[in-house]
């Protein structure tokens, strides 16, 4: 019969702030920076994919294929452990940010490309007929509408990234999970500490899901269903 754990509440209370601080100063900044850079990369890749230029489109397609076809952990290790062998050494935090940005870029590129293609062709033509260039139509008409379409899938990518940043602990980045590992190793209370860390991740994601819902409602305000 499974034995009920004897919960050390004092340890749970004492470890809460270090864990939360790890999340606020490690996980969240790493997520925000990686997601922002990843989105910029994704937009560039999406535009390359739809450019009609075979070379640009091919490069973007190959990049997306490699990123989506390899594990994030492998990408992280290639950057942190692999690059020094070719003379390029990057600190843990920037390594993690680069790996996560590149990964988000690959996945989000397809989301943004699909969102751009989902905007009716007539909207491009409406822009052309009032004298817009392709770039103006893209910037002023298409991307704002594509943004609305891409919010739900990009929010999912963002929420996934919050959890994926725990992989950065494997290259010694101090973030929520790394702090949990240290406390657990010291106290030997693995169950308690990892469940506590999981609860903090869950609360972070719950807050982000609420923000996502509000954002979607706000963007859908003037759209007929």
């Amino acid at each position: 019969m499974m034995e009920l754990p004897d919960i050390d509440w004092q340890l749970a209370i004492d470890s809460f702030w270090p864990l939360l601080r790890g999340g606020l100063t490690g996980t969240i900044p790493l997520t925000l920076v990686s997601f922002t850079l990843g989105l910029v990369l994704a937009l560039v890749l999406a535009l390359m994919r739809i450019s009609g230029n075979r070379l640009f489109s091919g490069i973007a397609r190959a990049y997306i294929s490699v990123i989506r076809g390899t594990p994030l952990l492998v990408q992280l290790f290639v950057i942190f452990y692999g690059l020094p062998s070719v003379g390029l050494t990057i600190d843990p935090w920037p390594s993690a940010a680069i790996a996560f940005s590149m990964n988000v870029g690959g996945y989000a590129a397809e989301v943004i490309r699909a969102a751009i293609l989902s905007v009716p062709k007539g909207q491009w033509e409406a822009g052309y007929t009032i004298g817009m260039s392709r770039n103006q139509a893209l910037r002023r008409l298409i991307l704002p509408q594509a943004a609305r379409v891409s919010v739900p899938p990009l929010s999912n990518t963002f929420i996934s990234l919050v959890k994926d940043t725990s992989l950065a602990s494997l290259i010694l980045v101090t973030e929520l999970f790394r702090v949990a590992q240290e406390i657990a190793a010291f106290s030997q209370e693995f169950m308690l500490i990892y469940v506590e860390a999981a609860m903090i991740y869950w609360v972070f994601c719950l807050v982000l899901s609420t923000v996502q819902d509000r954002l979607e409602r706000r963007l859908d305000r003037y759209v007929a269903h």
Partner: peptide, 13 residues
């Protein structure tokens, strides 16, 4: 040259 479309193509936002 103005143009109007079957599906209007107004900006929803």
């Amino acid at each position: 040259i103005g143009m109007v479309f079957q599906q209007f193509n107004l900006l929803a936002n």
